[in-house]
């Protein structure tokens, strides 16, 4: 399989700050690739370097097997970008905005017209064609931003935090649209600090922190990298130190935390851990309330690898 993007040993400094530290990345054509990391981890810097907007100190970047440079117009034709900030003309209507940006890539008028209509329909803005951006809600504006970035049917699309400050309805529409674009053959690079979105969309995920590649793989592979496989929470009152010590002795339990209201039991591997925990409470006549069992999230992965929360 061909690589859509290859980044080798990329180093980028902002004066004294090391934004990217010998960063490596390979994205295959047809993937939905997620770049996950907290704010300031280097996600946007990585994208801007790949897009040749930013200078970098060291490294090599190839897009579709070719060196990416500012005047690589043949490569740029194949790329679409949906930026974090909405980038549209306030003076132009929805249709005109999409038409303008599409026209920067597509010369043929008829083709362009068809593409513009398709993009507007794709993001569900058919009823707002003649609206000025200031008349659109935040969610609709984000959809317009997406339409401007994808109207020319690019083979590689970057989505940089496209759902920030978006209502749930628009968010679902955006995420569905991204998957649809991938089904149509586009390679997607999706950056976010919303782990749920990344989990839902991406076939492979790279976790970044401090400009470094912390972990890479499918979500299953990433979750296997950590000790935690299940977290059991039980609402319980009056638990004693001896009970906590007993719980720690149960098979596959490696950590127990109690805060006077609920006990949180972290398990590593094994099956039926929850049954064993509840059996312990019954056997010792300890009454309990609601019980939850959670599988590890990418936040757990990030927390365990870096020692900090993803949304810090």
């Amino acid at each position: 399989m061909e690589y859509a993007i290859e980044v080798k040993n990329l180093v980028k400094r902002y004066k004294e700050v090391l934004a990217l530290d010998h960063f490596n990345l390979e994205i295959k054509e047809g993937e939905v690739f997620g770049l996950l990391g907290p704010n300031g981890s280097g996600k946007t810097t990585t994208i801007n370097c790949i897009l040749s907007l930013l200078t970098y100190d060291k490294g090599e970047i190839k897009v579709f097997g070719r060196d990416m440079k500012p005047d690589s117009y043949d490569i740029k034709k194949e790329i679409g970008v949906v930026m974090q900030n909405v980038a549209v003309f306030d003076e132009l209507t929805v249709y005109e905005n999409v038409d303008y940006f599409c026209g920067l890539y597509i010369k043929d008028k008829e083709t362009r017209k068809a593409y513009v209509e398709e993009a507007i329909e794709f993001v569900g803005l058919e009823d707002y064609k003649k609206f000025l951006p200031k008349k659109l809600s935040g969610g609709l504006l984000r959809r317009l931003n997406i339409a401007c970035g994808i109207a020319h049917k690019p083979k590689l699309i970057f989505f940089d935090e496209p759902t920030v400050a978006v209502d749930p309805q628009s968010r679902n529409k955006i995420l569905e649209g991204i998957l649809k674009l991938n089904e149509q053959g586009a390679t997607i690079v999706y950056t976010s600090h919303y782990m749920e979105e990344v989990e839902q969309l991406c076939s492979r995920i790279l976790i970044m922190d401090g400009g470094k590649n912390v972990a890479i793989g499918t979500k299953e592979e990433l979750k296997k990298m950590i000790k935690n496989t299940e977290t059991i929470s039980v609402e319980v009152l009056g638990l004693e130190e001896s009970n906590i010590a007993d719980l720690k002795q149960l098979p596959h339990v490696y950590a127990v935390k109690y805060d006077e209201k609920a006990v949180v039991i972290s398990c590593s591997g094994g099956k039926h851990n929850i049954v064993r925990v509840l059996e312990y409470f019954q056997k010792n006549n300890i009454s309990f309330g609601r019980v939850y069992s959670e599988l590890p999230t990418l936040n757990d992965v990030f927390l365990e690898i870096t020692g900090k929360e993803l949304r810090d």
Partner: peptide
Amino acid sequence: QANVSSLGMRRCLSPNS
């Protein structure tokens, strides 16, 4: 200009001189 506005950034990314 890409370093001044988001619009500039989007236009810089297009295959235009």
